[in-house]
């Protein structure tokens, strides 16, 4: 069992949803981003998503795009993601990587999986890789005991929900709204409808992401989902702060509120 699967099970045993927070590595610097991830864990995020910045992030809105492109301009490399993973593992912070497919393909799928596993990472979320194209990744992840977190969307047919969840492990990422990250707030009932549809096909934990923007929503979603995933919200704290210290302070505050939200 991976650390992320573990922490999800623990949250469930406590009768609450887990909180998962995303930050891209390398923004504003590699060092600062790792500190921010650790702060996020410390403030109550059960697990961290380490974002691998990519030049063409199709499903990200302006806030995450801004952070990712600044990280790239500052010279972030794929190797920095592995390094971040190693530090988070050492600090006991369960985490997965979130990456668009091409950087992984270029690095070498099996090599990437091996390096993640060696670093202590639990797996990877693949926003632009559907299982149909993921044979190599599924094989590598199985070989290295990594979670394969695929997305399910409101437009996914029952057949696709069944086939996708059948090859998913760790948790299912329910994209709660049609749109890019940070585009609009999810409504509780639409997220619940999707979670209910997914539950018909799998016993895996279900995390709801894309569109969660405050503690109230987190609490609402925590009532029916196994995990609440926030991305734009934490990134926004860093993007909109004058100093790193200020950004991390705001980040702790926001994550603290959300952590309280998923426990309501």
């Amino acid at each position: 069992m991976t650390a992320v699967a573990d922490v999800l099970a623990t949250a469930k045993a406590e009768g609450r949803a887990a909180l998962i927070g995303y930050l891209p590595v390398g923004f504003p610097s590699v060092r600062d981003s790792i500190e921010a991830m650790l702060a996020m864990h410390d403030a109550g995020a059960d697990a961290i998503e380490i974002g691998l910045p990519y030049s063409d992030p199709l499903i990200d809105g302006p806030i995450i795009q801004t952070a990712a492109s600044k990280a790239l301009a500052a010279g972030v490399r794929v190797a920095d993601v592995i390094a971040a993973s190693r530090e988070l593992a050492a600090a006991g912070a369960p985490h997965v990587v979130m990456s668009y497919w091409n950087p992984v393909l270029r690095y070498g799928v099996d090599r990437f999986a091996a390096d993640l596993a060696e670093a202590g990472c639990s797996g990877m979320i693949t926003p632009d890789l559907v299982p149909d194209e993921a044979a190599d990744w599924i094989e590598a992840a199985r070989k290295h005991d990594l979670n394969r977190v695929f997305l399910v969307a409101p437009t996914s047919s029952p057949e696709r929900i069944a086939s996708t969840t059948a090859v998913t492990s760790g948790f299912v990422y329910a994209q709660s709204i049609m749109g890019v990250t940070g585009s609009r707030a999810v409504r509780g009932e639409e997220a619940k409808a999707l979670v209910d549809r997914i539950r018909e096909h799998t016993d895996l934990p279900i995390g709801v992401g894309i569109g969660v923007s405050n503690a109230q929503q987190a609490a609402e979603i925590a009532a029916f989902a196994d995990a609440v995933i926030v991305g734009t919200l934490p990134v926004r704290q860093l993007v909109e702060s004058e100093t790193v210290a200020d950004g991390i302070r705001r980040l702790r505050e926001v994550i603290g509120e959300l952590a309280e939200g998923v426990r309501r």
């Binding site: 199709l58 559907v130 299982p131 149909d132």
Partner: peptide, 28 residues
Amino acid sequence: MTTADFPRVGRFGAFGGRYVPEALVAAL
């Protein structure tokens, strides 16, 4: 289920495919 259950659609030899967010698959 194995990955053999997913036919590799839209390939020209090794090239092509459908590398998109799941949300767009229904539209495609």
